[in-house]
Write a protein that binds this DNA or RNA. Sequence first.
DNA 1: ACGAAATAG
DNA 2: CGTTCTATTTCGT
Length: 620
Amino acid sequence: MEASRRSWAPKRRDDRIIIHFDYDCFYAAVFEAENPALRSLPLAVQQKHIIVTCNYEARRRGLHKLQPINEAKKLCPDVVIVLGEDLTRFRNASRELYNFIRQFSWNNKAERLGFDEVFLDVTDVIRYNIELLNANDLANSFFCLSQNDPTLGFPYNAAELAGHASPASTACQVILNGIDPDSLLIRLHLGSHLARHLRTQLEEHKGYTATIGISTSKLLSKLVGNLNKPNGQTTLLPPYEAPEGGTGNATAFIDGHEIGKIPGVGCKIAQKLREHILQRPAEIDSGLVYGGTKEKVTVRDVRTHPTINLEMLDRLLGGPGSHRGTGVRVWQLIHAVDDTEVGQAKEVPSQISIEDSYIRLDTIEEVLKELRKLAKSLIKRVHLDLLEESDDDTGIPPVAEHSKGSTSLGLRRWIAHPKTLRLSTRPRPPLNPDGTRARSFNRISRSAPLPTFIFGLSESIDALTERLISEALLPMFRKLHPDRSGWDLSLVNVAVTNMADAAGDSKTATGRDISSMLRKQADVLKEWRVEDRPVPPDAPAEVFGKNTSMPASSRPDDERKGSEDMLVPSQDSRNGFEGAVWDLEDGAEEQVSALACEICGAIMPAFAMLAHQRFHELGD
DNA sequence: ACGAAATAG
DNA sequence: CGTTCTATTTCGT
C-alpha cells in the first residue's frame, strides 16, 4: 500500500535456452587456420600502429589487445606480426563459421554480433530432445540434431552437465525427480551438451575454438561465457530466481559486474549512473590514472541504491537524444532480465562500408586518391557480397564461398540492393593554438541515392569507380567540406546502406512453394502495363559539381522520365513477391520471351526494357 | 530521407 | 581514456 518508492523488480521468463559463441582471439585464429604453423608461435595482428589482437601464446608473454606495436616488440622481440587492415579474410571466415553454426538451428534464430560472436536460440531443439529422454537411463541418452533423421546426433549423459558451471558446482549430484520438461536445470543440461558438441564440431571441421555461454537470455549467456576462456564453456545454473525474496543466481551473477560491463550499458549511460550513485562528484572515473584508484560502481550498487527506481532511471537516462525506453531497459538489465529475441538469421548485411584512417589528409588531390581506393574496394565488395550465381542448386548453399572462377557467365543476380550512398569523414579538431585540447572525434556524413549504374555487369570496376567518384562522391565531399582547404581528415568512410529487400528473408521461400510462386508470377504479368507517356524534360542535374571533369557524353541520360507503373520487384518487399519473381528467371524467360533486368533482376518483355532502364537511371 | 549518436566487437 | 575497421539501431528533423 505504501507507495513504495521501490519499483517492483521486472518479471523473469526463463523459457528459452540461448547459446553465445565467442571465437577465441578471432583475427589471430584466422591466420592460424590459414597457416597452422603459427599456432605454436606468439602471433599478433596489426592495424596501423597497434596490435588489435594476439593469440594466447603472445598473451603469455605479456602482449594484449590494443597495444602499441613498439611496446609489443619490446616486450616480445620474436613476436610474429601480421597485417590485418584488410578485413576480407576475417569477414569471409566469420561468414563461414556463422553459416556452419546456424545449420544447427531449427528456428533460424542465429544472430551475429561483430565478426566473432554468435547467439543461437536452441529452445526448440532442447525441448524436442527432452521429450526423447528416458528417465530411467539418462546416462545413455542420444541428442537428436534433426527431426527428419533420427540417426543424426550424438550420445551423451543427460544426468550431468557438460563443461563448467556458475556458480561452480561443488558436488555433481543431480536430482531429477522424473523429467519435468519445464525444469530449467534439465534444459540447461541439454544446452550444455549441445554446446560442447558445437564446440568440438567447430574445431574439427573448421579449425576454430570458441568460448561459449549457456543460459536463458542474450545478456546472461554472453556474460557467463566469459568465465572460462579460451576454449571453454560455462552454464549459469538455476535457480535464477530464489523462492522467497532471496537472491537468485541470475541477479547474484549480474550483481558483481561493473555497471559499464553490461551489454547495452555503454560509456554514456554508465557515466550517468556512476555520477548518480557516487552522489555529487563529477568523478575522475577511468581517467589517466593507472594507479588503481578506480572507483567501481557495480550493478549491485546501482540496483540496491536507495534512490534508484524505475522512474528515477527514466528521468536520469531519458534525456534528449536518448533512446526511448532506456530507463526500462536498464532497469531490466540490472535485474538480470533481458527479453530481447535472438535475431533471425540474415543472409545479407544491411550495410557495407569501407574506411581508412590517416595521419594527415588535407588536400583535394590526396582525398581524390583515397576516394578512388575506397570506392574501388567498396564496389568490389558490393559485387562479391551481393551478387550470387543464379544457377540454382536448391540444396543447402555450399559454405565454400571461395569458389573462384564463376563459370556461369552472366548468370548472376543481385541478392540485395543498397539504395543509399554515404560518405563520412572525421575532421581533426581545429587545434587551438593556446594549448587547450580541442575535442571532437565525431564523424560527419552526407548521403545520397546510390547511382544504379554500379549494378551494371558490363562496365569494368575501374570505370564504375570513376563514375561513382565524379557523379556522386566528389559532389558529396564538396557538401561536407565546401572549403578547398582548412581541414584535415583523420578518417574517410564510404558506405552503401538501405538495402532494399535485404533485412527480411528473400530467400526463405525456396523449393516447395513453386506453384504459388507461379501463380503470383502470372498475376503480375497480367496486371502489367507500360504507359509510354512522355514526361517533361525537367530532370534537375544538380548532382553534378561545377568542376567535375566528366565528359558530357558519358553523363547518364537524364532527359526523360520513365513511366512509373511498371514491374519493379523491390517495390513490394513484403514476403514472397520478389522471391517469386527472382527465383523464376530461368523458366519464365523463354516462355514469355522476356528479359531479366541486369540491374534489379525484374523479368519483363523486351519492349519494356528501355523504359525500365530509364527508370533505374532516375533512381527509385 | 537525412545526419548524428550510442552501442557493440 | 583512445588507438582500428567496421556494423546495427534509434533519435530528431
